[in-house]
């Protein structure tokens, strides 16, 4: 080899020169950094670098056999970094091995605190680092947009499931909830509640007063139910309460009566008071019924019970007939 070390150091800062006896003659400046300066010129190359693909190479002839092929190597000292390599004969019986981080360049630079002067100016390593940073910045901008869109979507969905006047859930939300509970085979009760004498409030006091009454009723229902119970306004003055896991007739009757009693409290509106009442129909979901009942059928039974309560003079609750018939002793 007649080329001065400086020349090869600038062209290939990560190269090794191996003499004809297999010993290390010189290592490029960046490679020396990786080896923690413990280059050990004069040591056998196989003590410094492990060549393991495409074949193990522990002697110079074995190494030269791999000339021109892509080598996978690992340093034996320092952090035992994995490197890509290429070996070629040096024309004097020895070999030159040029090494590169390959795709591991980002970690390599971080681990060894390398700077741009540690790479040949023709090396694309720096451009690759640039690209990695630029891409993550662009990706971050993209993620920011996604997060905002996701937030907007959740708000829109929330709006789509909420009754604007009372803040309760709406009919669509109820349909979803019923579907989910039935699919899960849960035992639960459906209360269908319809206000009595509400039409009179609307007709004599106006819609604004009617709205205030609906809001007051909504508050009563939220107050008397548990946090996980489902309360929806499904029509003008119609509400549905779904009580997951509650199938005790006594407790349900008690709850229904308390709801009616609280709704009958005089509601102050604009210095005046409104008096209304409510009727309630109750039906149970029967997860073991064959064929399985749909949400619509279950609601229909609650609705029938509601009308039976109305027929019996309003301001009271009634259970679905079928539940009475099927009730176990």
């Amino acid at each position: 080899m007649s080329l001065p070390f400086d020349t090869l150091d600038a062209l290939m800062p990560m190269h090794l020169q191996i003499s004809r006896d297999g010993r290390l003659r010189h290592a490029g400046p960046t490679l020396r950094k990786l080896l923690n300066s413990s280059v050990g010129e004069g040591r056998h190359f196989a003590d410094v670098i492990e060549v393991y693909r495409p074949k193990r190479a522990e002697t110079l002839p074995m190494l030269l056999e791999l000339a021109g092929r892509r080598l996978q190597t690992r340093l034996r000292c320092g952090r035992r970094v994995a490197l890509k390599g290429l070996v070629m004969p040096d024309g004097a019986g020895g070999a030159i091995v040029n090494l590169s981080f390959g795709i591991g360049v980002v970690d390599g630079v971080r681990m060894h605190s390398l700077t741009s002067t540690d790479f040949a100016v023709t090396d694309l390593a720096i451009d690759m680092l640039y690209l990695v940073e630029a891409k993550s910045a662009a990706m971050e901008a993209s993620r920011t947009l996604n997060r905002r869109l996701q937030g907007a979507m959740m708000v829109a969905e929330q709006r789509a499931f909420t009754d604007a006047l009372t803040g309760l859930q709406n009919r669509r939300a109820m349909d979803e909830a019923l579907k989910r509970l039935i699919r899960g085979g849960e035992r639960f009760a459906v209360l269908h509640l319809d206000l009595d004498f509400f039409k009179q409030v609307n007709d004599t006091r106006g819609h604004a007063a009617g709205d205030r009454v609906l809001q007051a009723v909504a508050r009563v229902m939220i107050d008397l139910t548990r946090k996980n119970d489902f309360v929806a306004r499904v029509g003008g003055d119609e509400f549905v309460i779904i009580l997951d896991g509650l199938t005790d007739r006594g407790r349900l009757a008690e709850l229904a009566d308390r709801l009616i009693e609280r709704i009958e409290h005089p509601i102050p509106v604009d210095g005046d008071i409104c008096r209304i009442s409510a009727s309630i129909g109750i039906a149970f979901n029967r997860p073991d019924a064959m064929p399985m009942e749909t949400g619509a059928q279950l609601l229909e039974r609650a609705d029938e019970a509601l009308y039976s309560a109305k027929r019996h003079g309003r301001a009271q609750h009634a259970f679905s007939d079928e539940d009475v018939v099927r009730e176990l002793p």
Partner: peptide, 13 residues
């Protein structure tokens, strides 16, 4: 300017 610095996002929220 160090190459190895963790790349911060181009713009934090």
């Amino acid at each position: 300017f160090e190459l190895a610095a963790a790349p911060p996002p181009i713009r934090r929220e």
